[in-house]
Each structure stands twice: as structure tokens, then as C-alpha cells.
Amino acid sequence: MKPRIAVHKFSSCDGCQLAFLNAGEDLLELARQVEIVHFAEAGPMDPEAPVDIAFVEGSISTHEEALRIRRVRQASRYLVTLGACATAGGLQALRNFQADGVGGWTRAIYAQPAFIESLDTATAIARHVPVDLELWGCPVNGAQVFTAIRRLLFGALPFVDNEKVCQECKRRGVVCVLVTRGIPCLGPVTRTGCGALCPAFGRDCYGCFGPAENPNSPALARRLEGLGLVPEAVARRFHFINSQAPGFLETGLDYTGGPP
């Protein structure tokens, strides 16, 4: 019997699912090697069916999602998070800093707030159920996803690179934007995996792959202050796409005056 995989969506932009849908021939090859039992955007619909690997995109931001992720976990041998939302809450987790919750935001936006169901926080999948493998990135890329499938089906966890964007930059021979141009780059604390894309474009890394192993965020934050960033701007650097990730969360809070 072919191994079975599923792709589930929670609160997200759908961009990480494109790691599959943009894969072209690789997607067809994948469909030859495994059975794709659930992947609503691609067509197959069977969300409760047991699978070998469940890929989960998106964070948990409603009560319904908090219940649904448990059923996904129960039906899957491996659960793999796909990208920043599922792994650390994503950009929408910026709501978590609202001390009064999202009620005020909902009332400001919707004429009929009573019909809007939303939790006060958007949280990572691992806050709700055990996760076997976390794939970082906003978005993840096809190589991360297809390598993970291959390795997991051999019963091995894939190697996940925890080193910093800086190392990747040096290997690519990209001139350091922070040192040479004083651009507030997060490369020194951010996990690689993108290929040092932003510095190669002459701009700042904005941390979309989350914190690297042992990030020295406080030291980088002081350096950013030295470049002239006001404390709120330093906080915004860390409280962005992966604001809830350990290593970014605390440093951001240090520059906003404590926890929410």
C-alpha cells in the first residue's frame, strides 16, 4: 500500500501549500509514490482519514481550529508543521500583544461582531498537540517539504539546518549589508534555509525563517539601537513574522516595556 499523506489548512495565507502546487512534475511524481488523501486546495477531501504524514499549514486562531487540530493529530503518524504560522503563530500572532484581546479590533472592523468567532491569540500547532517535525519559513520551499517526505517515509527525521543566515551569506559571497551599509539585518539571529535571499538582494533579512540555534538577540538588538533605531523600531524587528518564537519574543518585549 502506498504511504498516505494529507495537507491541512488552518489560519494562513495558503502560501506554504504552494510548495506542493508550484512543484510541477514533482507533484505528479509525489502522487505516484504516495496517496494524497486530503488536500482541499488541490481537490482530494477526506480530512479525518488516517495518514502517515499530515502537513499542517496555519496557526490556531479559533475554537473550531483548536478542536480540529486534535483530530488531525489522532489520524496521523507524523505531524509536520508547514511554515511560520503553524510553527510559531505567524504574522497574525501580532494580535497576541493586544492586552485586551481582539474584541476591540473585531468591533472596529465588523458591523456585526457577534458573528465573528476568533480567539484572542493565534498560536503555534505545538502549543496544542505534539509535533514531530517543524518546517520554518514564510513561506517554506519545495525542497524542505519534499526532503521531509522522503526522509520520514524511511523512518528518519530530516536534518534541519539551524545555523544562521550570516553563514549562508558568507558562503554565497554576499557583502554584509549590516556591516557595510548599516542596514538593520536580522541575519545574525535568523535560521537559514532561504539561501540568504534578502542580503543577496541588498536588503535586510526580516527573520521569516525564525530564530536560529542559540541566537544572541539581545546583542543584535543593542547593535540595531547603535544604528539609530528607536526602541519601538527594535521591538518591531523582532515582533514581526515570528513574534512568538523563543529568541525573538523576549527581546522584542525588552524593547516594548515588558510582557503584554
Binding site: S61, L94, I109, F240
Partner: peptide, 16 residues
Amino acid sequence: PPRYFEKFLEGRGWEE
């Protein structure tokens, strides 16, 4: 689910 983009854009810098 609501993701509140228009609200958390408030207070962010133009470069972001």
C-alpha cells in the same frame, strides 16, 4: 478566520 491585517498594520513603519 479573521487575521486582522488592517489592524496590526497600524503603527508599523512604511518599509514594512
